[in-house]
Nucleic acid binder design. Structure first.
Lengths: 176, 176
DNA sequence: AGCATAGGCTAACGCCGTTAGCCTCGCAAG
DNA sequence: CTTGCGAGGCTAACGGCGTTAGCCTATGCT
């Protein structure tokens, strides 16, 4: 039974603008390009003004991560309705990550300031792995495989010319 | 057949000291604690003096990463001699990563400046996955699973109270 | 009319990686 | 013995980072 998506931390209209601009910046130029001065510049204001809307940069990033997890969760929950849910979840996971690699990295790489995120959101976004496999251990193992594949692909860790479709297929087979 | 380990980029004696101190610093306090000023302080010198030994911080990090990959490779190659090589490689991989989480993250997370590393070293350190499975696609999938497990564990991404031993066992079973 | 609040601003602080330029020591060659 | 030179330190400084303090102005409510 798929619970409803937890509510995101509410934002004022101006804060929503800022998050949108931040997201565009990260997607365009990577997470390390997200600086308070550059972001402010894209909005036609100065860096200190951003602090009228977010207490610090980490809070802004948390808002970005929430939106990223929420969208990924939506996609994965929808995938459960497809035939062969395990394969569908894997395929959608990869598609989403590769479509927005910089946001994927921001949301999933490095230590997570979990207390900054809407409660339950992280669990909800990973829930489709459990719903597809029906077992918590298989679900975690499958998620680890998917995350490993995606982050290694995004980070360019696989040797050039690797046939990643085949590697994904091999993983899907192992977990079926 | 396991090739010999590629030679690491050679270092002067003083540079070796610096790399050792940098490694201790990263292991003690995490990768973001590695700053040129703090590192120099641990060595009793000033930050600009470090540039007599390394052209920039990335070169120093590359030396750290080389050493990390070399040690991981040694451990994994040794694991091939154990009974049940696939399980042994997974077990040693996890042990090594968890024993030095900050170095593991430094070496494996984020985009890799491959051109700064000793040629062949990265492939050599991952070779045991191929030697254990006998198939390049299974090897990549298994490596992805192992990396995903380890990095999610290190980054504290699994829900509290997860029985990771069981998840590892589930993954090992899937790939056997 | 008066006033609070939202949302801008500049100046500045301490950190970061990095560069320029200087000095001093030890060693090797003439 | 002296001279020169490279190795390996140093200080001062630059531009960029996140962040804070303090100020100003316009909007809209009482």
């Amino acid at each position: 039974m798929s619970r409803e998506r937890p509510a995101l931390t509410p934002l004022t209209p101006r804060a929503t603008d800022i998050v949108s601009a931040a997201r565009a910046l990260v997607e365009d130029e990577g997470r390390e390009a997200l600086t308070m001065r550059v972001l402010a510049g894209r909005l036609g204001i100065r860096a200190p003004s951003l602090y009228k809307h977010f207490p610090d940069k980490a809070a802004l990033e948390a808002a970005l991560i929430e939106r990223s997890l929420a969208e990924l969760g939506e996609v994965l929950h929808a995938a459960l309705a497809e035939p062969e849910p395990v394969a569908a979840v894997l395929r959608r996971y990869r598609e989403s990550a590769v479509a927005s690699p910089n946001m994927y990295r921001l949301a999933t790489a490095g230590p997570l300031a979990r207390e900054r995120l809407a409660p339950g959101l992280e669990d909800w976004s990973g829930e489709p792995f459990f719903l597809a496999t029906g077992d918590p251990y298989r679900a975690q193992a499958l998620w680890s495989f998917a995350h490993g594949m995606v982050i290694l692909e995004i980070d360019g860790r696989f040797p050039g010319g690797s046939d990643l479709d085949r590697t994904w297929a091999e993983g899907a087979r192992a977990f079926s």
